[in-house]
């Protein structure tokens, strides 16, 4: 992509110079009609795909969210009723929003820093680095379906390993069934996976940090902590952005694990689960589910826009 944009911007730069002929000649030399046709085709295909596969359905969902429709009977417009019902009468909605927020905050403030911490430790080249690296990264390779299966084996009230290890056989804790505990039990597993992912990203970033920078800092009298926060961490900025984006995406798209554990009910409600629970199924509440999907989209767009604004501002600088 960079390849094309490079070229495309160059003619624009020439607008600053006086003398139109130069510009025209430059353009003619650079883009034959064939080039233009190829560009149009190559840009057109992704744009068409983007519109047809992403924005089209999104717009359709937004429209459907103002209707009541089960996919079989006639569609009935009910204005904003769906939204009113979601906010007022639909018991799982607010818990779902709240759980998504907890999910995001937990990943952002607990799991991600832990991943960074482990990366820094491993970057010090302690003995057995390779082993730790693989061991911590291992969960990332597992599909969430398998993680869900592991969750059942570990957390089950009746035969789970955790109750056995903790010796809670007389009064077993219902890790997955008790709504005050199950979200945290799941988040531990999510973190288990997320930490490995973040660690590998930071480890790669840390390897690329110029050791001379650290040397210079220590010559200037900075201690380890200062060196890390004042010198190393700022140079990791590109990685930080990637990790931030991944963390937000993970929190918003969270679905699989809770769905496998209990279909995302009883303490494990998430917005994504509510969307699918309402739309997928026999007598689908397509309008109602679409309204939930629109809410989720708006929240996601909030993050996407913030991120893009940041990136563009950065580029301008």
């Amino acid at each position: 992509m960079a390849l094309f944009s490079d070229r495309a911007t160059r003619p624009d730069e020439t607008t600053d110079h006086p003398g139109a002929p130069v510009r025209r000649r430059a353009r003619r030399r650079r883009f034959t009609p064939r080039d233009v046709a190829v560009f149009a085709l190559l840009l057109g295909i992704p744009i068409v795909l983007d519109v047809v596969l992403i924005w089209g359905p999104t717009a359709a969902s937004a429209v459907l969210s103002f209707s009541r429709w089960d996919g079989v009977s006639d569609l009935v417009w009910n204005h904003g009723d769906n939204y009113r019902q979601i906010v007022q009468d639909y018991p799982p909605f607010w818990p779902a929003v709240w759980h998504n927020v907890i999910w995001l905050v937990f990943l952002g403030l607990v799991a991600t820093p832990l991943g960074l911490f482990l990366a820094v430790l491993l970057d010090k080249g302690i003995r057995g680095t390779r082993f730790y690296q693989s061991a911590i990264y291992m969960p990332v390779v597992l599909s969430l379906a398998i993680v869900g299966f592991i969750a059942k084996l570990v957390y089950s009230r009746d035969y789970g390993a955790l109750n056995g290890v903790l010796g809670l056989t007389q009064h077993p804790v219902d890790w997955l069934g008790d709504p005050s505990k199950n979200l945290w039990a799941v988040l531990v597993l999510v973190a288990w996976r997320h930490i490995g992912y973040v660690m590998i990203l930071y480890l790669a970033g840390l390897k690329a940090v110029d050791p001379e920078l650290k040397e210079a800092a220590s010559i200037d009298g900075a201690n380890e902590v200062q060196t890390f926060f004042r010198v190393t961490f700022p140079t990791l900025r590109p990685i930080n952005i990637i990790v931030l984006v991944i963390t937000v995406i993970e929190a918003l798209r969270a679905f699989d694990l809770v769905f496998i554990i209990n279909k995302g009910r009883n303490g494990l409600e998430l917005l994504s689960v509510l969307v699918s629970a309402n739309i997928v199924g026999e007598a689908s509440r397509i309008g109602f589910g679409s309204a939930l999907a629109v809410i989720l989209t708006v929240i996601s767009l909030g993050f996407v826009v913030t991120y893009l604004v940041q990136v563009f501002r950065e580029e301008k600088r």
Partner: peptide, 15 residues
Amino acid sequence: QEGALGRTWQEAAQS
């Protein structure tokens, strides 16, 4: 049986 919300019918049947 306690803890029903964390148990599948298969597990209950096994008990």
